[in-house]
Design a binder for these strands. Structure first.
Lengths: 345, 345
DNA sequence: TTGTATGCGTTATCAC
DNA sequence: GTGATAACGCATACAA
């Protein structure tokens, strides 16, 4: 089929080793030899066989990124950043979608597909504490998420609690006192939702407020659609509220849509805040107050940590449960502040 | 390191070939032998080495999907669908981002990374007619886009012209007569933008209308930000218009945001329509009228065509420039129809 | 600086 | 049904 190194070697009148040296930019190759080889490569249209190289090297130069779903803007943006960061370091990214289902998340760790890559950046959604041992695999893994899940796997976390508290404090500072929560209410859990809920409750408590159970709009999956459903439930429930904290931006956008449909003015009647700072929120009407969890930092750090482990001497000991927490930034916008005053005509 | 087939063979007291047979579910293996091998596999925690298998098989079971950018909702949704469709057929997808830059699009065709996969699904943005020969590569390619670009490469296209005409007719049917275009105005070109522009102009011509050059809001890249800029330009230009056709949804959403900021009511003063039917548009305020290009069909067809070529007998002749055009569906919503009447309280 | 020989782990061929 | 053995194409000691 396609030309091999041997063909090139033959054509250039050198050995395979020399061709290999040229292809891999080894320093000690005579200029004339090099050019002769390059010429043969050009002439034959030689392309390296990566399967052979990978087999010989014992590595593939690929890493897996496992996310719930690419259609969710946050994970699309995450993938974008991870791909670029990995590319800069010479790695190629293979994306696996889990749908946020526990079964498929567990599957990622043992799947045939996973074995085609050198390591894994994993953003689990449904995995719980008891699943932690499953993460103790023999290939390098970097987790995106909370320490609680995994004892010894390095991970890059958001400041979920602090950021959620900041958002809630922002709502409180605006005088809102009855803040509904949109998303799963589970302050005891280990996932991002639970942590954000804890930050939310902490802020309320610090302000001397209680959170009425009726002010929860539950949403199993975090999508615009479930956010909308949750908001319908809240409005139909009759328990009054003057603000909404949605556990992420798409939930918030779904909720805002329903508020619009029900003629509830944002932020006058109800202020809305989300979490993630997806670009969509900046263009929403009203633009969405949210908190930026430091996505670029998260993506780059995750890639760095993984590559570090991939290139580490085989004997290198795993650092004990390294944790990196990204910096967050509040992004107050119209959905809580109201519309900027227009210059009068 | 990890156990190999030979280790398993030794442990089970059989030959490597037998292990291979078991692993690959070959029919002619004695039940007792099979279970013995499986036990050894379990015991040793054997995992197949894919680089070795790929080398031996001469294929990798991976395909490349090259898109401009995952952060753009349309391409995120496309990737989502392609990954799932490929997965169903036993293929893994490796995503390449081109940024819509010609350089990087050309690079995709020859990059080292590409050589790790068996084929390519390519959604080019900047490639032009003269680049067509570059697409004549020796590995299977399926293009997402227009025939014009490529003479002989199979491709899956949208009904860009027809769909754009339908959207424009929708605006005309609502009585709009001065329709601004947001996006690149280039009716002569070969890309999706040009085709949509042609459909747009066709509808206008059929209605006996001309399109004033001033009613173009140019946007090189198709993003919310450039859509917003384009709309600012249109409004500042002073040429009055009562509708906007944006060449895609994110452009439309960016434009709608600026209309809001400038107190131009949609659709009362200006109706807005887009193209792509991204989910975001359904939740926008007002919800965005658009046209659905048949994304699932496009993704599945592309994967099917590629897999077909990958599995075809080596001798099989390439069908001459096969073209599949997906079905489109108008999605009229609030941004042109106005808000559905609310039941009075 | 360059060549030779061997191994990487799997599949395929063909006997048995 | 199962086993020995030769590819697959490249990298890499080690030798020259």
């Amino acid at each position: 089929m396609s030309a091999t190194m041997r063909d090139v070697a033959r054509a250039a009148g050198v050995s395979v080793k020399t061709v290999s040296n040229v292809v891999n930019d080894f320093p000690h190759v005579a200029a004339t030899t090099r050019s002769r080889v390059l010429e043969a490569i050009e002439h034959l249209g030689y392309q390296m066989n990566f399967s052979a190289r990978n087999l010989s090297l014992g590595r593939t130069g690929m890493i897996t990124l496992a996310v719930p779903e690419l259609s969710l803007p946050y994970f699309a943006a995450l993938s974008d950043e991870v791909i670029d960061a990995a590319s800069e370091r010479g790695y190629t990214v293979l994306i696996e979608q889990t749908g946020g289902q526990r079964e498929r998340e567990l599957e990622v760790l043992v799947s045939a597909r996973r074995r085609m890559t050198d390591g894994l950046i994993f953003s689990p959604l449904a995995l719980r504490g008891p699943d932690a041992p499953t993460l103790e695999v023999e290939f390098p893994v970097v987790l995106l998420g909370e320490r609680s899940l995994h004892s010894r796997v390095p991970h890059v976390a958001m400041a979920n609690v602090d950021a959620a508290r900041a958002v809630t404090e922002h709502l409180l500072a605006l005088g809102r006192r009855r803040i509904a929560l949109v998303g799963t209410f589970d302050p005891q859990g280990a996932g991002a939702g639970s942590l954000r809920t804890r930050g939310f409750l902490e802020a309320l408590t610090a302000a001397g407020l209680e959170h009425p159970p009726a002010l929860v709009g539950p949403a199993e999956a975090w999508t615009r659609t479930t956010g909308a459903e949750a908001m319908r439930g809240l409005l139909d429930g009759g328990e009054p509220f003057d603000a909404v904290f949605a556990l992420n931006d798409v939930l918030a956008l779904g909720a805002m849509r329903v508020l619009y449909e029900r003629d509830v003015v944002v932020p006058d009647a109800v202020a809305v805040a989300g979490f993630d700072d997806i670009e969509e929120g900046r263009f929403a009407r009203p633009s969405l107050t949210t908190v930026a969890p430091g996505l670029p930092q998260i993506a780059r750090t995750a890639v760095e940590l993984l590559v570090e482990r991939l290139t580490a001497e085989a004997g290198a000991v795993d650092g004990p449960g390294l944790e990196v927490v990204a910096d967050f930034t509040m992004q107050p916008r119209e959905s809580t502040l109201g519309r900027a005053p227009r210059p009068s005509p």
